[in-house]
Write a protein that binds this DNA or RNA. Structure first.
Lengths: 166, 166
DNA sequence: AACAAATAATTAACAAATCAATGTATTGAC
DNA sequence: GTCAATACATTGATTTGTTAATTATTTGTT
């Protein structure tokens, strides 16, 4: 039992606090890296997230409310996010014929091309950065599920199963 | 090998993607819960974080730049955060006598009392929500460290070791 | 001592998140 | 069919995050 280990133990109130702080810290770390990747493409992580949701649905349209449901983070302003994507010609938007309150959003070819470019970068990023084996990555997911008292493949799975290429 | 398991495997590109998305998701989940706790006290998670840093230093003062160094998230506007805390009489602020460019910040008794109240809530929150054993919580921390290619107890440890009651 | 460079904090400017209010369209009760 | 209630999206107002510019002080060089 090394001194370092003692110090480590003592500086956190409990293994739970330590894990929670570590999740916050790792989340910030991952987000910063992602932003670096997206910056040259003038895309925020949220915009990227929406584009991927749209790709998962392509060539079917998807309404704004359905986008909100599938977004990982609670919500910024989906309307405004779509506005931003529209301004860059990455999506098209039109009134839904079945329900004229709703708005159909579809990713454009330009949007698909951009995602294809980013896929390559994301892939490289993964390969370079991860110090985990595949098995450990799975373990990590299981522990996070358990932390949330959630059966593996519950809400998270539902959220993502319609998003291709995650 | 159940169908669910197949679906689960197929809907993610790799165990790495799955783990990263799970971290984002869990981070949002934790942040939402924390905000619910803090809302009745009119405190944001960032303000709470700063208060805990100040408590860790108490009764010594700490400069704004030292607060920034110890904050978990890169940075909002530390000056503005301190302004907000000052407006609520949770801290006091005065020019540092040794270096008149710098500003010394100290938590007030009112701030300490508020944190003490929140400690209890945080504790209950932990007890109720965590589906992990202590051992699993430690495992989780180790895997996150490994994901970041970081030796356990590196930057994260340094950041937190001066903050009591973590 | 004088002056350029560096440092600490604040302020300003702009983008994004958040929440409430509004404008349409649809649904359901009667 | 009418009207209240609900649903979908947008808009507005406020706060926060982020970056750069600014002010004041200190440090180091000559």
């Amino acid at each position: 039992m090394s001194i370092e280990k003692d110090i480590q133990q003592n500086s956190f109130k409990s293994p739970y606090s330590k894990a929670v702080i570590n999740i916050f810290y790792t989340n910030n770390w991952l987000t910063s890296l992602q932003m670096e990747i997206f910056k040259p493409f003038d895309l925020t992580p949220q915009q990227y997230n929406v584009l991927r949701i749209l790709r998962g649905q392509y060539p079917e349209p998807i309404t704004v409310i359905a986008i909100i449901e599938r977004m990982l983070d609670k919500m910024s302003n989906a309307s405004r996010l779509v506005d931003k994507l529209l301004a860059k010609d990455l999506v098209i938007r039109k009134v839904c014929p079945n329900d004229r309150r709703a708005v159909d959003v579809i990713i454009t070819q330009k949007g698909l091309d951009l995602l294809a470019e980013l896929d390559v970068l994301q892939q490289k990023w993964e390969e370079q950065l991860y110090g985990l084996t595949e098995c450990e990555a799975n373990q990590l997911s299981c522990l996070l599920d358990k932390l949330r008292n959630s059966e593996p493949s519950n809400e998270l799975e539902e959220l993502t199963k319609k998003i291709t290429n995650n």
